[in-house]
Design a protein around this nucleic acid. Sequence first.
DNA 1: GCCGTTTTCGGCCCGACTGTTTTCAGTCG
Length: 574
Amino acid sequence: MAVHNRDIAAAFEEMADLLDIQGANPFRIRAYRNAARAIDELSIDLASLLAKGEELPRIPGIGADLAGKIRELCAKGRLKALASLRRQVPPGLSDLLKLPALGPKRVQTLYRKLGIHTSAQLRRAIHDGRLRSVAGFGPAIEAQLSAALAAAKERPERLKLAVAAQYAEPLRAYLAAVPGVVAVEVAGSYRRARETVGDIDIVVAARSGSPVIERFAGYEEVAQVMAQGPTRASVALRSGLQVDLRSVEPDSFGAALVYFTGSKAHNIALRRIAQGRGLKINEYGVFEGVRRIAGKTEADVYRTIGLPCIPPELREDWGEIEAARANKLPDLIEQSALKGDLHLHTRATDGHDTIAAMAEAARAAGLSYVAVTEHSKHLAMAHGLDPKRLMAQADEIDRINTTLSGMTILKGIEVDILEDGSLDLPDDVLGRLDLVVAAVHSGFHLSREKQTARILKAMERPHFSILAHPSGRLISEREPYDVDMARIIHAARERGCFLELNAHPARLDLLDIHCRKAKEEGVLVAISSDAHSVGEFANLKFGVLQARRGWLAKEDVLNARPLAELRRLLKKTM
DNA sequence: GCCGTTTTCGGCCCGACTGTTTTCAGTCG
């Protein structure tokens, strides 16, 4: 059984939980949690690195001991220290930590006083009234646990960013209209544009006396107020989505934004730097002793610790702080820099609108070129095009182009990469197009070896411009197929072709880490809407956000190039 | 367990809210 970074992170996380329950040194526990997070966010696969006989890279937070544990886990598939801890702590206890109001102390108390180590036992103890007999467990905690146990099966999944926006944006507008509110920002992972969001964090700047907390708690979609104080409140919406609001004075808004945008790892790194300069950062500002020296804007906060303002999408402690220090932060791509869209469908296959309507909608979205890229015949479900229909469409595009001004339609295809690595249409047909977008739509189950070989073989075909949705994943619906993305990216550089970042909110594939890798290798990324109707050019926004998370600048994006230059680049692939 | 322009020892990010208890521990983000 291969060990992946995920497994190493999970092992360290479990170590931390078990040590926590044992009441171990909190800093030792934190070291395990920090290491788990660092490994989880790593873009290189540690086990395969070690398998190749290479040394572990230097990872912040991982010293000699944890490096040794990583090697042990990769070599043997298990960890002595973890096995030993598991023998000391009753099974199930660490699962109880996931319940609200239950931390290591209370879990320990429950076990000591009532012998509880599973949620079933906890449920019975509540039912029998035994829980209340334990000092420190009153009716409120009992009710909270009872509700959590009942809801355990219907816990809401993380929401896709685009879905979260449907809740967050109306709430933002609602809060902005509350008297005394000067500014509202949705912070947290939403602002960092993570592809999924677990809850919504909102920061408001409000003058003292503003009823913003009360209005928030009274928002019509609020189903339950879980906590409410003078400066913060937590609610659950009817959908189950948790929303946290934090209100600060306008002079503290920047500091609060930094604090609540996170990521946690980024914030910790910032505070360490501040500490080194004899400063303290909290959600109210940057302090020198008791004197506040910054806090009104985010830029102020960063400036006091000698850094330029770091865009939210980069705040993951993935090297952005080092880059900021060296003044080498990327100038991230903006949506307005996109000049065209290289992947869309029309009525000819599974789209809903005509070529002309799509072109018009693209122009309205501020673009000056689009490529029509229908499915090919193998995708019969989508009524994919055969050579005859494709050529007829090409003629139609030529005709429409003569009627357009300020918009050019390119002739393309989204051709299936078949299981043997061949393309679904013959070379002479593909050669008559402006570009060939190719994608895997079947055979998701192939082994990593075979899947990678299949795609690499397709990329070697004489007409291959862009690999569409390179991993095939659908967020929280379908896992990516197993493919060696590092090799694909490297091959794309050798071949001189491009990779797509599909902007559909369910796809967002390339992943951010792969965007970054592509950039490092000098492979241009196409941010494509994959629009199936005129309204879907709006999805480009999410593609751009993902690209920003992947450190992409305008220069790194294929469809940020003007048409003439784009044609030259595409020609080389054809 | 990690880490080092103050350190190889002695620090380690910081504050709000809740519940239960009478002044604060525990949890959470």
